[in-house]
Design a protein around this nucleic acid. Structure first.
Lengths: 233, 233
DNA sequence: TAGTGGTCTAGACCACGGT
DNA sequence: CCGTGGTCTAGACCACTAG
């Protein structure tokens, strides 16, 4: 339910509720969300506020509004529109494939008096008998914000899930640079590439809703990753 | 002024007015737009409608709303956040550099009974004595929608400006795939690259606000291009 | 304190989709 | 026809910024 006295605006509270219901499967792919009228009654707020929440979910690509019909979950659309920092596990689940993670490095270090965990993971999708490697992720997370995070087994635990559920910190926004690179021997070996080829690398930071920096990240994408991008002109 | 009987919603009419005023320099970089209250009086519409227009300009990256201060033009921010289909000339102007275009190919052809113009351009920025090549653009535009477009001299005329001003058709949305490639001898020669290296290539379609396909495009980006991307998680 | 944008209410009328 | 989302009005109160 919503708290009208909370400092968090109602439409953001509602957005979080709906988003988590979608990600947790309360509403599934292609399901219709409750209509705006129904949500008005349920949460006792006006349609304007409802529509603001839904408009942002739409913008984030989680739902699709269709005039005259309703508002529908669309996990499908996002599945190949992936500069995905959505969390790899979420992504995999949407494709009905099992995420698989190999931890290549995990260590803590100190710089300028601040402690960090460095985590390098090889990530892929497993379906039946083939494993497709997709990315090599390198994360740096501040221990000040996530104390003892290094004690987790990241081959079975999602970093973003941990952030949300254990630390109640919500990754919200990513700001990254994109560049093409040519694979190195190490990358070739990890991705099992037959020959050197061009790949994409992104690097940047992940922020919370209040612009707190919670992660520095580098992702190298395998050629198995397909990128789609839509942009307003 | 706005036409309340037009089928085009008021907030879209207003958005177009403000956008063209920004692009045409009526409001310059860092200028403050008229406040929402002033716009209410000027256009005789309610603040909700104003805010919807401005919110979309914000989303498109053209303005920045600052609580307690005002709404400001921010051409600067977008200047390196470029998967820019914004039109190369617009982009160059924002960087206070001169766009320079070399037409490499221009021809019309027919396929499935439809006529198209194919246009290949090498594009760059000229500042003082150096020219920096940025992209190789290949465009396919339907002559059915843009009759006689092939008669233009594209070394001095912007394609998008032509679409807008001569044909009154507004590019609005781009849907593209991104992939890394390794340069070919032809590309190396055109970009004057000392050696083969990884580059980015995007290809896709450009649509109007009513989802009419007006262009198929391929862009190869030189290493001089820097990409920044922001995304909600 | 005055002016700005941010949130929210309580309505209204419309256009679209399916029955 | 009814239910859906799309647009718009006319207010209200709040939080932030700056003089």
């Amino acid at each position: 339910m919503l708290n009208k006295n909370d400092v968090v605006p109602l439409y953001i509270q509602l957005k979080r509720i709906l988003r988590s219901q979608i990600l947790n499967g309360v509403f599934k792919e292609m399901d219709m969300l409750p209509s705006e009228t129904q949500l008005m009654k349920k949460y006792q707020i006006t349609r304007t506020t409802i529509r603001k929440a839904i408009a942002e979910l739409n913008q984030e690509g989680l739902v699709q509004q269709v005039h005259g019909k309703g508002t529908f979950v669309r996990l499908r659309e996002t599945k190949d529109t992936v500069w995905n920092f959505q969390g790899f596990s979420d992504l995999a689940r949407r494709q009905n494939q099992k995420p698989i993670t190999k931890v290549l490095e995990k260590e803590t270090y100190q710089t300028d008096g601040n402690h960090f965990m460095k985590l390098v993971r090889l990530r892929g999708l497993k379906s039946e008998e083939t494993t497709t490697w997709m990315t090599i992720d390198t994360s740096h997370v501040p221990l000040k914000i996530f104390p003892n995070v290094e004690d987790n087994d990241f081959s079975s635990t999602s970093l973003y899930k941990l952030m949300r559920e254990t630390y109640h910190i919500f990754p919200h926004y990513a700001n990254v640079n994109i560049e093409p690179i040519i694979s190195t021997p190490i990358i070739r070996e990890r991705f099992e590439l037959p020959e050197d080829q061009a790949l994409l690398r992104s690097s940047g930071i992940v922020l919370t809703e209040s612009n707190i920096e919670i992660e520095r990240i580098e992702i190298i994408y395998s050629p198995n990753f397909k990128f789609k991008l839509s942009q307003y002109i």
